[in-house]
Design a binder for these strands. Structure first.
Length: 450
RNA sequence: GGCGCCGUGGCGGAGUGGCUACGCAGCGGCCUGCAAAGCCGUGUACACCAGUUCGAUUCUGGUCGGCGCCUCCA
């Protein structure tokens, strides 16, 4: 296992990855709220944390990745009401879409995908503990977290409680002791069709408490990495951290790892509320899964990443260089230059998961390999691509059908007779059929172009 | 108003106090019957102004521009 560091939002610096139980890494990444289809912005954390898991496993860690699904909240009630459906049914449908859409990334599933609605008892238990410890109070069926009861509140997102905009919080504002307080449990309101019994009456959990409860259920307290989009740092993660620390006297997670936003149009963040979204499924349809994945990994995870058709097209073009390299692989032992690049690839990922630097190393490997004769074996390249979920780029090519081979043979005969006009005409015919001919030293090669 | 981030060559995008990032596109060459692929070479790139320094794209201060969070948001 090499030394691995990851940037932590709380401390603002890279922290060494330290495991609680030797070799085991727990990662909890906040997933989507399922009131509509996911967009490419939602796909970024899914990809980042899935690929991070692959890398850590390759380094010898046993990784448990948890990505939750928020399937009860105001947005869902509202969307269901507008659609004239039950929120329960809408949430189930959108969860199924989310699973199907992210399955198309072919990165596998997280180890656990807990639903808020299936974690109600642990949530109630956690709230109960907060109340009995004096960190929360019930008021007319709502339960609120007493923010000022926790002196460290604000550390994670670097906010000073006394300088915070004391929200124009509409709902429940009148019931709070302090405008800063946030809801742990919300009493059922007329028109809400999903709710549970609790010691405080019927209602449903607040947004933040579900993650504290689900993370603890599956990973315990004090696990290694908690992740999600940087837009969640406040208030969501701040509140999650506060709840667990207040209830358990221990930090929820060691490292808080946040990905930057995907932007669309100017430099605006892609978000459902702004309406400037591109559906994940649509983008995969248009540019292909490989290009989408490569694009998401082509920038450092903490930087903003702009969505633009030209950028996705460039990603697809970059992929070609890898595919071409794959055609040229042989059986030789990789030389030192290749091995150095291979090592640089892993070193880049170990240094705050620097995927663009890792890709540069991968291309360095390809350049070195392209200069080798005989060509190196596929092992190292396959290993690197495998972590990125792109090993499929090396999959065998489709065999040319008999009539295409026949045309190529006729062309070869024409070439042997130095009948260039006929040879070029046959090459055009092959191109029209979607096959490119390359005259290599070991005879003509047929490459499928579409 | 508070907190945080960013501004790199045609495009995307890393990184560093002095030595080619990388990919795509372009240009020249090698190879090829011609191509393709590959290889080699190629671009006064680091928003602006000061300062620190032998030397700054990289550090410090300021200016301009853009973004995120402070309310649901990956």
């Amino acid at each position: 296992m090499r030394f691995i560091s990851i940037h932590d939002t709380r401390t603002g610096s890279a922290l060494p990855l330290q495991t609680g139980v030797e070799g085991r890494v727990g990662i909890y990444a906040c997933g989507p709220t399922v009131y509509s289809r996911v967009h490419v912005g939602n796909a970024r954390p899914f990809v980042v944390f899935s690929v991070l898991k692959r890398f850590l496993e390759r380094e010898g860690y046993h990784v448990t990745l948890v990505v939750n699904v928020t399937d009860v909240n105001d947005k869902i009630y509202d969307a269901a009401r507008v659609a004239g459906r039950s929120s329960d049914e809408l949430a189930r449908e959108m969860t199924a879409h989310y699973i199907a859409d992210t399955d198309r990334l072919r990165l596998g599933r997280p180890d656990f995908e807990p639903r808020a609605t299936e974690t109600i008892q642990p949530i109630i238990g956690l709230i109960d503990d907060l109340v009995s410890r004096g960190h929360a109070y019930a008021e007319q069926g709502d339960v609120y977290f007493r923010v000022r009861s926790l002196p460290s509140y604000g550390d994670l997102s670097h906010r000073d409680v006394d300088q915070m905009d004391q929200g124009e919080g509409v709902e429940g504002a009148a019931l709070k002791e302090d405008p800063l307080d946030f809801a742990l449990w919300k009493a059922a309101k007329p028109g809400e069709d999903v709710f549970w019994d609790s010691p405080w009456g019927t209602g449903r959990p607040g947004w933040h408490i579900e993650c504290s409860a689900m993370a603890e259920e599956l990973l315990g307290v004090g696990f290694e990495i908690h992740g999600g989009g940087i837009d969640l740092a406040f208030p969501h993660h701040e509140n999650e951290a506060a709840q667990t620390l207040a209830a358990r006297g221990e930090q929820l997670a060691r490292i808080w790892m946040h990905n930057g936003m995907v932007e669309l149009g100017g430099h605006e963040k892609m978000s459902k509320s702004l309406g400037n979204i591109r559906g994940l499924a649509d983008v995969i349809d248009e540019f292909g899964r490989d290009a989408v994945l490569y694009w998401l990994l082509s920038g450092h995870y903490r930087q903003p990443l702009a969505f633009a058709p030209e950028t996705l097209e460039a990603a697809a073009a970059s992929l070609q260089r890898i595919v071409e390299a794959g055609r040229r692989l042989g059986g030789a032992e990789p030389n030192a230059e290749c091995s150095d690049s291979h090592d640089a690839f892993f070193a880049a990922l170990a240094d705050d998961f620097n995927t663009p630097r890792a890709l540069a190393a991968l291309f360095g490997w390809i350049n070195a390999a392209n200069r080798c004769d005989p060509a190196p074996a596929r092992g190292q390249l396959e290993g690197m691509l495998g972590i990125l979920g792109l090993a499929n780029l090396l999959e065998g090519e489709e065999q040319a059908p008999a009539e295409v081979v026949a045309l190529a043979q006729r062309r070869d005969e024409a070439r042997a007779a130095k009948d260039w006009a006929t040879a070029d005409a046959l090459r055009d015919e092959l191109a029209a059929l979607g096959w490119e001919v390359r005259d290599g030293t070991s005879g003509p090669e047929l490459i499928k172009t579409f």
